[in-house]
């Protein structure tokens, strides 16, 4: 899959992973990497941006056999934003599908 395409949806995908349940950075990367190969280093700035825009928040969680990990939890604002993004994407998907199938959209 083209990196340019991935880039556009990465924020939505990351948010959706956090929406499912609270996750830590590497976990998010692995989840996404399972479906589409991405560069790990692109995830972290996105996470940072999400926190900065109050779409998700972080907390430290102790672990049984290691140092604490930084977990990400989606906020109310994040949920609204995610719904918007998904809605936008659906519309976009529809339009693109029509175009590549050669249909006219009135």
């Amino acid at each position: 899959m083209s990196t340019q395409l991935k880039k556009g949806v990465l924020e939505m995908v990351v948010l959706s992973r956090i929406n499912e349940k609270d996750r830590y950075g590497y976990d998010i990367y692995q989840e996404i990497d399972y479906y589409m190969v991405i560069s790990e280093s692109t995830i972290y700035p996105i996470l940072r941006k999400l926190v900065k825009e109050n779409l998700c928040e972080t907390y430290l969680k102790e672990s049984k056999n290691g140092p604490p990990r930084k977990y990400f939890r989606i906020t109310k604002k994040g949920k609204i934003k995610l719904e918007e993004l998904i809605e936008d994407f659906k519309k976009f998907n529809k339009v693109v599908n029509r175009m590549i199938r050669g249909e006219r959209y009135e």
Binding site: G25, Y26, R48
Partner: peptide, 20 residues
């Protein structure tokens, strides 16, 4: 401070790999 955040991620990443 921006640099530190990125470095923290990678430090944690090392823990994930080595400890877990």
């Amino acid at each position: 401070n921006e640099r530190k955040e990125i470095l923290d991620f990678y430090e944690e990443r090392f823990y994930s790999g080595t400890v877990y």
